[in-house]
């Protein structure tokens, strides 16, 4: 059961602002999603290792070689606000 407190905490963690009624609404939604997976706990996974990658591939590397970077101008092309070749944000305290 996901409480309104949990929704509030998670929203804060995810940098989302929720109005009071939204909190209740999402708590309800999240619980519905949760219901769809109640059955998972019944599947016996003792001795089963987690499967984070479906492919049997390992050791994918690149060699330590320097390639081309983008220019400062290109990197900043989509920046909402910039200054002196850098992305600009409000003062970090």
């Amino acid at each position: 059961m996901i409480s309104k407190d949990v929704v509030e905490k998670v929203a804060k963690l995810s940098r989302l602002h929720l109005e009071e009624e939204e909190i209740a609404q999402y708590a309800d939604q999240l619980n519905q999603i949760l219901d769809t997976m109640a059955g998972l706990q019944q599947i016996d996974t003792d001795g089963v290792a987690p499967l984070a990658h479906v492919l049997p591939i390992e050791n994918v590397f690149r060699e330590d070689e320097v390639g081309e970077c983008f220019t400062q101008e290109t990197v900043l092309a989509n920046a909402p606000e910039q200054s002196n070749g850098m992305f600009q944000v409000p003062k970090i305290v």
Binding site: V10, A11, S14, Y26, L30, I33, I43, P50, L51, A52
Partner: peptide, 29 residues
């Protein structure tokens, strides 16, 4: 937003083992 909230919650310290890690094991099964 609902996916973000739910996804974030499944990875929380309290839920990781019970929810996310469980899903990874079920995936193998």
């Amino acid at each position: 937003k609902s996916a973000i909230l739910f996804g974030s919650e499944t990875l929380s310290t309290e839920n990781y083992k019970k929810v996310y890690d469980k899903a990874l094991r079920v995936r193998r099964v």
